[in-house]
Amino acid sequence: MKGLRWRSERRLRGIRVPRPFNLDAFCAEVAARRGRPLIRRPVPGLAAEAPCGMWIATDRTDHIFYDPGTSPLHAEHIVLHELAHILCDHSGSAGALARLFPDLDPAAVRRVLGRVSYTTEQEREAEMLASLIRGRTAPPPGSIGPLADAFGFLE
C-alpha cells in the first residue's frame, strides 16, 4: 500500500500553490479548477462539540465554513483542510448539517465534510495535503532556482 505522504505528493502535482502563500489566491485557484464560485465564511463557535471547519457543496457553489476563534495560521489551515477535501474529491454525508444549519434545505446540499479528527482515511489525507500546501518551505518560483535552493543558497 502506498504511503499517505506519497499519495498526497502526487495529488499536489499540477496544483499551483502561491509562493509566498496567499489564501485568497489559492482559493481563487481552486475555484477556477472547479469552474464554480467558492465562498468561505467564518462561523464563530463552530468548534464547540462540532467540526472546526466544514465544506458544503451545493449544485452551484462550494461553501467553506471555519471557526475564527483561533490563531490566523490555524484558521487558515482549517480552510486549507476543507480545500484539500475538494481537491481530493472526497465524498461526505449530511451528518451534523441539520444541527448546525437547521434552516438549510438538505436537498440542496450535495456533499458535506467537516474537520473533526484524523481517524478516517479521508480526513488524514485532507490533513496531510493541507500540511504540504502550507507547511513546507519552497522559494518563490524563479527567484533563486531549484538547484541553488537544493544546495541551501538563500537570497
Binding site: 468548534a47 472546526c52 471557526d67 476563534g69 483561533t70 490563531s71 495560521l73 490555524h74 489551515h77 500540511s131 504540504l132 502550507r134 507547511g135 513546507r136
Partner: peptide
C-alpha cells in the same frame, strides 16, 4: 513541515 504539524496539532488541542 514537522514544526508546522506540531503547531497545528497544539492549536487543534487548544481549540
Amino acid at each position: 513541515l514537522r514544526l508546522y504539524r506540531r503547531v497545528i496539532e497544539i492549536r487543534d488541542g487548544m481549540l
